[in-house]
């Protein structure tokens, strides 16, 4: 398969006045295949969010190149949609309007009827038909995040970037959203990059798990292939030897090889 999204020699430095630059991440080389789902996992401060921000273009790398379908990424764009950790819905727009705003901007050629159809299709995809006229302030955190996902997918991005998408949610809601995401992913077949600090989430959702070493100068430590068939069932997986192997590999990486004390 040809290269879809590749990160080549990525480094990110933050200048500190009067001191040497802080090197957040360095020497990151990664190739992501089309329709692949990868997770980037690591302790806090390993630069995984920085990495995602560079792919989204919201942050620029200091050196190295990020190439999507043979084109250098410069700045943000709708072909790399982002699901933000804090959902980032516009609180004065309803669920419907939040998605509509994105579709309208990215697909200005759509007529009124097609526009409505498309928005409603994505509202339905995350099972929010009953809440489509509610404001973000009136729905739960999990529902907001589902709107965030619908908004990101509604503009048919080439890559879906998720920055700890379920990090702020309780574990039951999180499981529910993971199910939503897997179900949707089966349908739309998208390339997805998920930043997470949850080992089970990483194994459950991804084809590959990218493990980051600790910062400063964080880089890719190990890459783990998750050879589990889809659709995946979280309950059945608990007994699956491959699932257990993957979990243990990540556990050992995070807590033995690159253990980190909380200050």
């Amino acid at each position: 398969m040809s290269k879809f999204l590749s990160l080549e020699g990525i480094e990110k430095r933050f200048p500190i006045p009067g001191k040497e630059d802080y090197v957040a991440v360095t020497d990151v080389n990664l190739e992501i295949k089309e329709n692949e789902i990868i997770s980037i996992i690591g302790h806090s401060g390993c630069g995984k969010s920085t990495l995602l921000n560079m792919i989204s273009g919201l942050d620029a790398q200091t050196s190295g190149a990020i190439i999507l379908e043979n084109r250098h990424i410069q700045g943000p764009g709708p072909e790399r949609a982002v699901v933000f950790q804090n959902h980032s819905l516009l609180p004065w727009l309803s669920v419907y309007q939040n998605i509509e705003m994105a579709v309208k901007k990215v697909m200005p050629q759509l007529g009124a009827h097609e526009l409505r159809q498309r928005v409603e299709q994505y509202v339905s995809m995350v099972n929010l038909d009953h809440a489509k006229d509610k404001l973000p302030g009136e729905i739960s955190g999990g529902m907001k995040q589902r709107v965030g996902i619908a908004r990101a997918l509604s503009i048919t991005p080439k890559v879906l970037l998720m920055d700890e998408p379920f990090g702020a949610l309780d574990s039951l809601t999180r499981a529910n959203l993971q199910e939503h995401l897997m179900r949707i992913q089966q349908k739309v077949q998208n390339t997805v990059v998920i930043i997470t600090h949850d080992i089970d989430e990483a194994v459950l959702l991804s084809d590959r798990v990218i493990m980051m070493t600790n910062g400063p100068q964080a880089t890719i430590g190990e890459i783990l292939e998750v050879n589990l068939p889809r659709p995946r069932n979280r309950v059945e997986l608990q007994q699956n030897p491959e699932y257990i192997r993957c979990r243990e590999a990540i556990l050992s990486f995070l807590y033995e090889k690159f253990a980190k004390d909380d200050e």
Partner: peptide, 8 residues
């Protein structure tokens, strides 16, 4: 950031 991603 939302505005930037959507290229407003």
């Amino acid at each position: 950031n939302v505005a930037k991603v959507l290229r407003f």
